[in-house]
Every structure is written in structure tokens, then in C-alpha cells.
Simulated assay, not measured.
Amino acid sequence: MSRITGLASRSLEAYRLRAEMRRRQPPQLRYVERGADVPTIYYLAPDLDAAVGGIRVIYRHVDALNGLGVRARVLHGTPGFRSTWFEHETPVVYTPDVELTGADVLVVPEWYGPTLDRLPAWVTMVIFNQRAYDTWDFVPYETTGKGSPYAGFGNLKALLTVSQDNADLLEYAFPGIPVHRVRNVIDADLFHPGDGTPGRRISFTTTRRERERDQLLHILRSRGVLDGWDVVPIVNRSETEVAEIMRDSAITLSFSDREGFGLPPAEAMACGSYVVGYPGLAGREFFDPAYCSPVAENDLLAFARAVEAACASYDEDPLAFAKAGRVASERVLSEYSAERLDGELLAFFTPLTTRS
């Protein structure tokens, strides 16, 4: 029986790997020998119309570069496709309509890691790794060697990432490839505190640590901590709706797990919500205990105690409690501003797009 179970498990794993490799197959790219009057930076993006923070960041980079006078486009494989869960007027083009030249730069997300070898060797490439802890997902161990999966690309210029934590990991894993960090942006026009004091609402996103989240909520409910609180999971919401929920939440729970950055807790802080939970490693750069309650990784008991303490603090003095959330908002919006991102993008891409 154990042998049959083992065979079934291996067959299932092989099927999952094949399915994922098909899903992560990059679109066909075309190249022409002629030069280009103006180089273009193409951000290749998966055709996934779901609330994926990494895709939102890709669109934001393209908007920022165009605003700086640098020609940039989001590149999708399916004609007519574009992300619809956030508002934008980002210029989008499609691989059947695009001919890359030697002057152009292709920015490829780490999501394509298992199939990077299917991209043409001639393209000048930057890997945009927004979640370094996923770098080797679905890459068979038996097929990797030194520098995999980024080895063998003669025109790979650099790795781009969004947190110092991830930059440190990538620099260690790939000592021969330059690594640059550009900060994420929290949109102050969207993520900002409300006029009044948030009510007795606890919100959280649902994309991480599902089983641990369920355990935590059971513990809190069994102790009566959640009595009188509106507990709101954030699921399948637009960016605007997410901001509204966070703004109206006295407390936001963070279930971050081995993050590239951790946008949800940062956005909650920007909305003035008091964040309790896991920094997810990368989030340590903005999880300051002066204005939130960071919890050590996997410490469920500490998490439960921190939530109970936050609820009690709110009930004791809602105005004073909300003040900590507003301090968090000021710090986060100042550190992760569009102006700072602009300078970092310009410093990174100028050498790659300037003809010698």
C-alpha cells in the first residue's frame, strides 16, 4: 500500500509540475536587427486578472518611467488583455505586435523562473524578483546548477527587487549578478486615514497562512476577544474597496509569510489602521513596534495575545489608539513615496538605455 501511495504522490507531483510549467510558459518574442530611435523598457506581465500585488507594481513602474520621460510598456501575451482590478491608464502592448531591438530592455518577473530558458538569449534582460523566497518554485532540483535559474543568460544585466531583505538573499544566492533594490509605493491618494476614528472592525487579507489564520480566529473567539467586533476578510475586492475597508478598521491582522515586501500591512498602516501580526521577514523594514505590533514568525500564542492587547487598548481609549495608526501612516507614506521610487528607477535604467 505504501508503494502505491508513493507512486500516486509522485505522479500527482509530476502532473502539478507539468501544469505549472505550461501556465508559466513565456509568450513568443520577436526580434529585429534594426536599431531603435528610442529604446523601450518592456515589463513582461502574466495574463492574470486577479488581485496580485506584483502585477500592480509592474503597472506602477511603467507609469512612473513614462512620467519621467522614459519610454516603457507593459507587455502581455494575449491581445486585448489588461488588468482590471485597479484603475489605470497604463500603456499596454502585446507580444504579437512587438518587435524587440538590441536597444530595448525586457523586464521579466521571477514568476517565469521555471521557464526562463525558453526566452531568447539575445534579449537584454532584467529579472524583476518581487518575492525572492519563490525564486526556485517549480524548478526541479535535478536540473539546477550554479547560478540557476538565472545562469546562462549572456544579456542578463541585473536583478531588481523591492526590499532590502530580498536584496540580501539574492546577493547571497547569485554573487555574480548585480542586485538593485527599488522601493514599493503606497499610493497616498488611495491609502490614507479617514477623518474620524475607525470603528470596532478587524480586517485581514486571505492570501497567506489560511490554516494558521483559522486557528487564531478560533482562539480569539473562544476567549471572547472578538465579541462586539466586526471581523472582515478582504477577498476579491478592488484596490479602492481594499483601502476603504482598511481605513474603517481599527485593527488589521498581518499574515505575511516570506514576503518580497508585504504590501497589505503597509497599505493598512497608510490607512491609519493598527497592524498586528507577522512581518513576513521583508516587512521588518517598516514593522516598527512604536506604531504596530510585530509578532515573531509562527508564534501563534504571541499573535493571539497581541490581538487581545490591541482590542483592549482600543476599548480603553479609541482616540489614543488611533493616534498610533496615524503615526504609522505618516512614516509609511513618507518612506514609500512615488518621488523616491522615481529617483531609484531613473538611476537603475538610465545606464541600460543610454547608448555609448
Results as ranks from 00 to 15, higher is better:
216 L>I: 15
216 L>R: 06
208 R>G: 02
224 G>F: 00
239 E>H: 13
218 H>R: 13
216 L>F: 04
219 I>F: 07
221 R>N: 15
234 I>R: 05
204 F>I: 08
230 D>N: 09
206 T>K: 06
224 G>D: 08
223 R>C: 12
233 P>W: 08
232 V>F: 00
218 H>E: 13
217 L>Y: 06
215 Q>C: 01
241 E>Q: 15
234 I>W: 00
237 R>T: 10
205 T>A: 03
220 L>N: 11
205 T>E: 03
217 L>R: 07
223 R>A: 12
210 E>R: 06
211 R>A: 12
229 W>M: 09
232 V>N: 03
208 R>E: 06
206 T>N: 07
206 T>W: 04
225 V>N: 00
236 N>W: 13
223 R>Q: 15
210 E>C: 00
222 S>Q: 09
211 R>I: 02
241 E>T: 13
209 R>W: 01
201 R>E: 10
202 I>N: 13
240 T>V: 15
203 S>G: 12
221 R>E: 15
237 R>G: 00
230 D>E: 15
207 T>S: 08
211 R>C: 04
199 G>W: 10
200 R>I: 12
207 T>H: 05
202 I>H: 14
208 R>M: 08
223 R>L: 11
217 L>N: 10
223 R>H: 10
224 G>L: 10
226 L>P: 06
208 R>I: 00
225 V>K: 01
240 T>S: 15
218 H>F: 04
201 R>V: 10
222 S>I: 05
211 R>M: 05
207 T>N: 08
218 H>A: 04
211 R>W: 06
206 T>S: 02
225 V>W: 01
224 G>A: 09
220 L>H: 08
225 V>L: 03
204 F>A: 03
231 V>H: 00
238 S>C: 09
223 R>V: 07
221 R>K: 07
204 F>P: 04
215 Q>P: 00
203 S>M: 06
205 T>I: 01
239 E>N: 11
200 R>V: 05
234 I>L: 07
207 T>F: 03
215 Q>Y: 01
205 T>W: 02
213 R>L: 09
230 D>T: 11
224 G>C: 11
238 S>G: 12
238 S>V: 07
203 S>Q: 11
231 V>S: 04
210 E>M: 03
229 W>A: 00
232 V>Y: 01
199 G>L: 11
217 L>A: 08
214 D>M: 08
232 V>I: 14
203 S>W: 05
202 I>P: 12
239 E>F: 08
235 V>H: 05
201 R>C: 13
209 R>V: 02
204 F>M: 05
208 R>W: 04
233 P>N: 10
240 T>G: 14
226 L>V: 01
215 Q>L: 06
235 V>T: 12
200 R>A: 14
207 T>V: 03
236 N>K: 13
210 E>P: 00
221 R>Q: 07
232 V>K: 10
235 V>G: 06
234 I>F: 09
239 E>Q: 14
238 S>T: 15
210 E>T: 09
231 V>A: 03
220 L>I: 05
225 V>C: 09
234 I>D: 02
213 R>D: 05
231 V>I: 14
226 L>R: 08
223 R>E: 15
213 R>F: 08
207 T>Q: 06
223 R>S: 11
225 V>H: 02
234 I>T: 05
205 T>P: 03
235 V>P: 02
241 E>N: 12
217 L>S: 12
